[in-house]
Design a binder for these strands. Structure first.
Lengths: 203, 203
DNA sequence: TGTACATCAGTGAACGCGCGTTCACTGATGTAC
DNA sequence: TGTACATCAGTGAACGCGCGTTCACTGATGTAC
């Protein structure tokens, strides 16, 4: 008899209020769970409790939603790297080395813990974002870590030019290969050791 | 009036004869052109001139076809690398260095020229193949090239353990990043220079 | 302070599509006697 | 050498599905006077 009232009090408001954000969150969760290639706009809308077409008030198309998810992925990686830097402040040699090690480890850990997100971030869907400056965060952190090592005289002479790209490539490649089974997950420690042997002055 | 005869003489035989091979070839072309994610079993069947269900006499499912395509991709990469080795025989230092350089360059060129195939080969579809020994070809070639450099005393001391994985990772990472726009295509030369500076004894 | 109205953010039904896979079938092939 | 028959490799129709996107619409919001 008071069913109407109960439903009325429970009813969702007609306007969601933060639909764009809610859809990105849901899509992020879906991608994390099963990969961008299985993401469904309709599925996201349904999970959020909204009709399929509502999405088009906030995103041009499915790809735009995926790009937003990709941006979250970059942010997540960047945050992990920032945490590493915060955990190893200090101007001494050991701190600088720890920072570089930690950045590489964070990168590979991210890939192993969030393989689907990692693939989206670096995949064709997010190409444009990568070409633009979206990447400055993680890349600049690596670059700065190398500059610090160099300033402390820890790098072998002549080795610094291009080293940022090389180490990024090595870390990224190891991450990718570990995800796909080309290298075992334990390879990350060996990689970090190997890189240090290559770039640091013998003490 | 002799339409029937003409058609008869032109008619395809009921049995294709080499359908499996023809489908792999067609699928390979399709993947090359537009990526594994857009491959359609029905499309391949149609292009080959056969009904959609005919495929199931030769492949368990679509993924099996894709794995066969992936195997072709690995073979193509391996062949490029083999050609490089053949082009630089010789026991001298320069030949050994040229071989390593050439292998890396071939790997990155393959990625840039065949990005879709590269992604398939290293993507989740072919994970099992990667974990099994399918990979021995390219990887063993790299490993052998490093052994040769080491035997000639060209590597910096202490640097050889794990170097195969590190260089594979760096090359693979650079290839991936160039495909996705994270690094410009010209980065491959810089990468090769950088690696040489890292691993070779100063002359 | 109240009201008209433009704008915004939803609904829900429909369009049109291509897909992977199954099934009962038939034409072709090759082998055993 | 000829024939029966098992097996192989196709056909083509159908199933069932979920998808991205569009469209005309309506309820809610907020702003100008």
């Amino acid at each position: 008899m008071n069913v109407v009232n109960i439903q009325k009090s429970t009813a969702r408001p007609y306007h969601h209020g933060a639909l764009a954000e809610a859809m990105v969150d849901q899509a992020l969760a879906d991608v994390r769970a099963s990969g961008a290639e299985h993401l469904s706009l309709r599925g996201v809308a349904q999970a959020v409790g909204v009709s399929p077409s509502a999405a088009y008030n906030h995103f041009a198309d499915k790809e735009a939603l995926l790009q937003a998810v990709g941006a979250c992925g970059v942010a997540a990686l960047d945050e992990r790297m920032a945490r590493v830097l915060a955990a190893h402040p200090g101007d001494d040699a050991q701190s600088a080395i720890d920072r570089l090690q930690g950045l590489g480890r964070a990168y590979m850990t991210f890939a192993l813990e969030e393989p689907h997100l990692f693939r989206l971030v670096f995949g064709p869907t997010c190409q444009k974002q990568m070409q633009e400056a979206e990447w400055s965060g993680p890349y600049l952190k690596l670059n700065a870590a190398l500059d610090e090592l160099d300033a402390l005289g820890l790098l072998r002479p002549g080795v610094r030019p291009g080293l940022d790209a090389t180490i990024w490539a090595a870390t990224h490649g190891a991450a990718s290969l570990m995800i796909d089974g080309g290298l075992p997950p334990e390879a990350s420690d060996a990689l970090i050791d190997s890189i240090e042997r290559l770039i640091l002055n013998e003490e």
